[in-house]
C-alpha cells in the first residue's frame, strides 16, 4: 500500500494536518446537524445520504433518498429502468453538475463532509471518487496515456510508469497490453476497453469507484472478468455499482439497494429507494412486496 503513495501526496498530507483546528470546527457543526443519524459517524460508512432530491429543470427525478454506503464493500443499486439509480449514482461524485438544469438538494455526506456544501470543489471530489461509465469511453490516445491522464492532471510528472503498470495490473489488463502500451486505447476489445477505464480510474488512487452499468455493453466472458475484478478490488476500494442485471448484483455485491419509479399524483415518475439490505436478504427475504415482485420477475 505504502509504495503507492507518491512523495507529492505525503507532502500534501503534512500541509493538510496543519489545518486541523479549522477542520474540527467545521466538523463539529456538521455532526451537530446530524446528531439524530446514528450511522453517519461510523468510520466504516463512506457515504451517508439524507433526504436527497434530484431535479432536472422543473421535473423531479429522484426523491427522498436516505442511504448509507459502507466502506470496502460492493453496494449494488438495482431497479427497473427509469428508476433514477444512475442519477443517484452521479450524485456521489457530482457529475450531475455537468448536466444543465440538474439540481441536487438534501445532503450527501462523504466521511461526514457534505459533498454539496458551499466550500466543496466538485473537481476535488471527482479526484477522490472515481467513475466507470456504462459504455467504455477510452480517450482517443495510447493505452499508456489513458491511464496516465488522471495522475497527470493531478500534477504528477514522475513515476508515471509505475503508476500505469500498477493500475493496469490491478485492473487485470497488464498482461494483455504490456507490449502495446503505445497503441490506441480504442484498438482494444470492448471488455479490454472497460478494464482500461477501470485502470484509468484506479490510477488516481481513489477512495471510491462508482460504476454505472459497467458490463451492459459487454459479452458474458468480458462481464465475468469485470465481476471477478470488482470482487478483487473491494479489499481496497469502496465500490458502488448500478446494474440492471440482478444476477450480477447477487453475484458480486454485499449490500443491495432496490429503487423503483413511483407515479406521483402530478403524473411525474419519480425514482425512490424502496429498501436497502444485505444482498442475500434482498434476494431471499425482501421486506417490501415491490422488491419481491421485481426480483421474481413480475415487473421490471
Amino acid at each position: 500500500m505504502v509504495n503507492r503513495e507518491t512523495p507529492d501526496l505525503m507532502e500534501a498530507d503534512a500541509t493538510r494536518s496543519l489545518r486541523t483546528p479549522v477542520i474540527v470546527l467545521t466538523r463539529g457543526v456538521e455532526t451537530e446537524a446530524l446528531s439524530n443519524v446514528g450511522e453517519a459517524d461510523d468510520p466504516q460508512t463512506v457515504f451517508s445520504v439524507r433526504g436527497l432530491d434530484v431535479h432536472y429543470g422543473p421535473t423531479i427525478a429522484v426523491a427522498g433518498i436516505d442511504l448509507d454506503i459502507p466502506a470496502r464493500q460492493i453496494t449494488a443499486l438495482i431497479g427497473p429502468s427509469g428508476c433514477g439509480k444512475s442519477t443517484f449514482l452521479r450524485c456521489f461524485n457530482r457529475t450531475n453538475d455537468l448536466i444543465p438544469g440538474a439540481k441536487v438538494s438534501g445532503s450527501v455526506l462523504y466521511h461526514g463532509l457534505d459533498l454539496y456544501g458551499p466550500q466543496i470543489d466538485p473537481v476535488e471530489v471527482r479526484r477522490r471518487i472515481g467513475m466507470v461509465f456504462q459504455k467504455p469511453n477510452p480517450f482517443p490516445k495510447s493505452i499508456y496515456d489513458n491511464v496516465a491522464f488522471g495522475p497527470r492532471v493531478n500534477g504528477q510528472r514522475k513515476g508515471l510508469d509505475e503508476v500505469v503498470e500498477h493500475a493496469l495490473t490491478r485492473a487485470a489488463l497488464w498482461d494483455e497490453v504490456k507490449d502495446k502500451l503505445k497503441k490506441s486505447g480504442l484498438a482494444l476489445s470492448g471488455g479490454q476497453q472497460q478494464r482500461l477505464c477501470i485502470a484509468r480510474a484506479l490510477a488516481v488512487n481513489p477512495d471510491v469507484v462508482l460504476m454505472d452499468e459497467p458490463c451492459s455493453a459487454l459479452d458474458p466472458i468480458a462481464t465475468s472478468r469485470i465481476e471477478d475484478l470488482m470482487v478483487e478490488l473491494k479489499r481496497d476500494y469502496t465500490i458502488v455499482i448500478v446494474t440492471h442485471n440482478m444476477q450480477q448484483a447477487a453475484r458480486v455485491s454485499d449490500g443491495t439497494a432496490f429503487f423503483t419509479a413511483e407515479v406521483r399524483d402530478s403524473g411525474d415518475r419519480v425514482g425512490v429507494l424502496v429498501e436497502y439490505d444485505q444482498t442475500e436478504t434482498i434476494f431471499t427475504a425482501p421486506s417490501d412486496s415491490r422488491t419481491e415482485g421485481y426480483i421474481t420477475g413480475r415487473f421490471g
Binding site: 500500500m1 505504502v2 501526496l9 493538510r16 477542520i23 466538523r27 461526514g112 459533498l115 471530489v125 477512495d207
Partner: peptide, 19 residues
C-alpha cells in the same frame, strides 16, 4: 492501514474549492 487518500478523511480541506 485504512485506505483513504490524503490525511484525515474528515478534513474538509481536501475537498475545499480551489481558486
Amino acid at each position: 492501514m485504512l485506505r483513504i487518500p490524503g490525511s484525515s478523511p474528515n478534513d474538509p480541506g481536501i475537498l475545499r474549492a480551489r481558486r
